[in-house]
């Protein structure tokens, strides 16, 4: 293989990784959200709904105000509000956490279209967003200058530079969550709340407050994922645009065994599978024939089921997950 072909291959690889990374962004944000919530003991299957509602709020407000930043604030607000509804039902009223999550998903799925039609009369979509109403790719310093250098240049220009703000925020979110959980008092208490709330309570710390804060953090992270979908990756809101990503994130969170760095790995893997499936659409492979795109897209779900079944490794959830805490009087 000559040099030109090799360099071509390198750039191709980088593009696939770049795509994987982009598609992994909403997964990373939502999986971190789920992780924080579930480590505190509150099941969150409403990731999907919060992300969808946030995506709508971001696009709608960005379109009406002309500023993606206003959209960002609205998205965080809407998602946090839904998170507080979840908290109100699950923490304050000790309701069924799964049912509350299902309710939030359905509320968002219906609510975004109802609001979309009322606001824009375009069948539930937002108007397409202009360039300055979106978060645009950020060219990191030196990307242009370094792009001429072989190997490293394309790596920097293609993979590291040129992403939108939410993508970089997703990357920062992982070490931040990891640090918070492992190194801060709040993180320690949050983890203890998810394992043995009684102990936290006897130490004089409010279980209710810790869980509310965890749920709220989850809301904000899902909000960012929504911002990514409609005002950074896409240019406007389309109905059902979250397309099950919240559930894949849930799978990634379990696949990563509720730990930040492994969860990041799972998200990147699932993002890679999605990119690979898209690239292989209609491609003829040696021996197999037409690439089994549907099968590749199913892999995250199958892998999660197999992992949960304990056939390889074991995913053990926090002990108090899903158990409402009743303070003794």
């Amino acid at each position: 293989m000559d040099w030109a072909a090799l360099s071509e291959l390198w750039i191709d690889t980088l593009r696939i990784l770049d795509g994987s990374f982009r598609l992994a962004t909403p997964l990373i944000l939502c999986a971190m959200a789920g992780l924080v919530s579930e480590r505190s003991g509150v099941i969150d299957i409403g990731l999907e709904g919060k992300m969808l509602a946030a995506a709508f709020a971001a696009a709608a407000v960005a379109s009406l105000s002309g500023s993606p930043w206003a959209g960002l604030v609205a998205a965080l607000g809407v998602s946090a509000a839904l998170a507080l509804v979840h908290g109100f039902a699950c923490i304050t009223h000790r309701g069924e956490q799964i049912i509350s999550g299902v309710a939030i998903n359905i509320l968002a799925s219906g609510g975004t279209v109802v609001a979309g039609i009322a606001l824009f009369r375009q069948g539930g979509q937002s108007p397409p967003l202009m360039a300055d109403e979106r978060f645009r790719p950020i060219a990191l310093p030196g990307a242009e200058a370094l792009s001429g250098i072989p190997v490293i240049g394309p790596f920097y220009a293609e993979l590291v530079s040129g992403h939108t703000l939410p993508v970089y925020l997703a990357l920062i979110a992982v070490p931040l969550v990891a640090w918070m959980l492992a190194r801060t008092t709040f993180g320690l208490r949050l983890r203890a709340t998810g394992e043995m709330p009684l102990a936290v309570d006897s130490a004089g710390v409010s279980v209710v407050l810790i869980r509310y804060r965890a749920v709220l953090i989850a809301g904000l992270l899902c909000g960012l994922a929504g911002v990514f979908l409609s005002t950074a990756h896409g240019a406007g809101f389309v109905r059902e645009m979250s397309a099950g990503k919240g559930y894949i994130a849930l799978a990634a969170m379990i696949f990563g065994k509720w730990r930040p760095w492994p969860v990041l790995g799972a998200c990147l893997l699932f993002g890679f599978l999605e990119t690979a499936a898209a690239r292989l659409q209609g491609v003829q492979l040696p021996l197999i024939g037409e690439a089994p795109v549907e099968l590749i897209l199913m892999l995250p779900y199958v892998a999660t089921v197999v992992l949960l079944a304990g056939f390889f490794g074991r995913a053990i959830p926090p002990k108090a997950l899903g158990v409402p805490y009743r303070k003794e009087r």
Binding site: V85, A89, C90, H93, G95, E96, Q97, I99, S100, V102, A103, I104, N105, I106, L107, A108, S109, G110, G111, V113, V114
Partner: peptide, 13 residues
């Protein structure tokens, strides 16, 4: 769908 979500929230959770 919105009504359905509200019903699940109030009659369920």
């Amino acid at each position: 769908l919105l009504i359905q979500g509200l019903i699940i929230l109030f009659s369920g959770a």
